[in-house]
Design a protein around this nucleic acid. Structure first.
Lengths: 231, 231
DNA sequence: CCAAAAGTGTTCTTTATACACCCATGT
DNA sequence: ACATGGGTGTATAAAGAACACTTTTGG
């Protein structure tokens, strides 16, 4: 069996891939995970980690598997960004891809180039290199979805560590919306929203150290329902 | 060449389909377009119109083509709902589908069963029949996306006729969110939002006849940007 | 003459915005 | 001692929620 195994179908079928837009926030910058491609096409260019769908897995499972294989990051995707199917989007032939958004916390994410990836690195979202395939289009859509979701989901908390401060959180919002918010109003809004639970201070009063908070899921859902009529 | 044409690939590939969730508002009820399937599997059951992706078209183009072929409705999809890929979702074998949301205006939509459709009909979203495949799952996701988009897009106006009244619009919102809004506050909110342009009354004063409005796109974008920080 | 549907108005409460001050830390 | 970053406060404007009245049409 040295010759290629062949798959035969009565009708034409496209190749099906998945791609992962993996986000992470280091306390200052919002970053995306990119791999440098080991193989053609777009050899040596940066791209979102991804690969081909296998026979026994859903798109979500494929995304998680490919992400782990190429970067060592093992995390379920959070949501779909969308499917991309321009006829000429892959020089190898007709390929459609479904892109996923994955959110990671900086204190639980170790990356390591493996498999089809020659190199793996985080890039600040406002300083991205040229991307392979139609990944620039995927990137733009990911940013739009991020802005929308930041309005109405607990998505910011999936990027923060378990304990976090409001100044940190505000830097994250500034990164996403690309403008600053008033610090005092920002704090007031979040504290009064009920979606934060303050963590008891250390007995040693640290003076001006920022207060740590934890995400309060119940409070968030109440807020969401009231504000957006979404249960 | 009487034998089947065969397509051969080095690697396994799934079949790829598209489905259309087509919405329409008749002034009272929000409705979805379903076809009764002519062929197995799920013969004679109701399903969203859709079919297989062809070699020379994007998913969006395939969705539009299939919708026209089966129902006579010729309208570009508005957005993707998502891709569905459960391994066992199609008894014929591994198939993934991408579902689209299409919005139509009742005064521009004629339907006619054709092709794979034995019958075509509108169903009120709150009175749907059992659906084929995993279309119930698609239906649920479509409803969620609808609620989200109603908060932040001009999507409601794509369902209303060019000229519409606020009471009509309010009935549409009630259908989507499954609860009533206060008529006076509802009107005030929309009128003050700047996204409506009133249409001059007929010279004949009609007394209590509702006022007609037109959608004002510029006003909408200003509102959206201010409220959601989305440009 | 009454019910139904449409327009308009007022008050109160809640959020959003704009802006100022104090305190602790590190240099 | 001063710049930095962090917490808190207040006054005004805008938006949302609750609620009542008037008009016209059709039966």
């Amino acid at each position: 069996m040295t010759e290629n195994k062949k798959y035969e179908y009565d009708y034409w079928r496209p190749a099906v891939t998945v791609d992962n837009v993996v986000l992470n926030f280091d306390g200052t910058h919002l970053r995306m995970l990119l791999i440098r491609r080991k193989n053609e096409p777009y050899k040596d260019q940066w791209a979102f980690p991804g690969g081909f769908l296998d026979e026994d897995e859903s798109l979500e499972e494929a995304a998680q598997r490919e992400l782990k294989e190429e970067t060592g990051v093992n995390k379920k995707p959070f949501i779909q960004i969308g499917s991309f199917s321009r006829v000429d989007r892959d020089p190898r032939g007709r390929t459609i891809t479904t892109a996923f958004l994955t959110l990671t916390r900086s204190n639980e994410t170790k990356i390591k180039a493996q498999d089809d990836a020659k190199e793996v690195s985080w890039f600040p979202v406002h300083n991205m290199p040229a991307l392979a395939f139609d990944h620039e289009e995927i990137f733009q859509k990911a940013k739009l979805i991020l802005k929308i979701l930041f309005n109405l989901s607990p998505i910011p908390f999936l990027l923060m560590n378990d304990l976090f401060t409001l100044p940190e959180m505000q830097r994250l919002y500034a990164e996403v919306y690309e403008h600053d918010f008033d610090r005092r109003n920002f704090q007031k809004k979040f504290i009064s929203s009920g979606m934060l639970a303050p963590v008891a201070h250390d007995s040693k009063e640290r003076g001006n150290a920022p207060t740590f908070y934890r995400f309060n899921q119940g409070g968030f859902y109440a807020y969401q329902k009231k504000k957006f009529h979404i249960g």
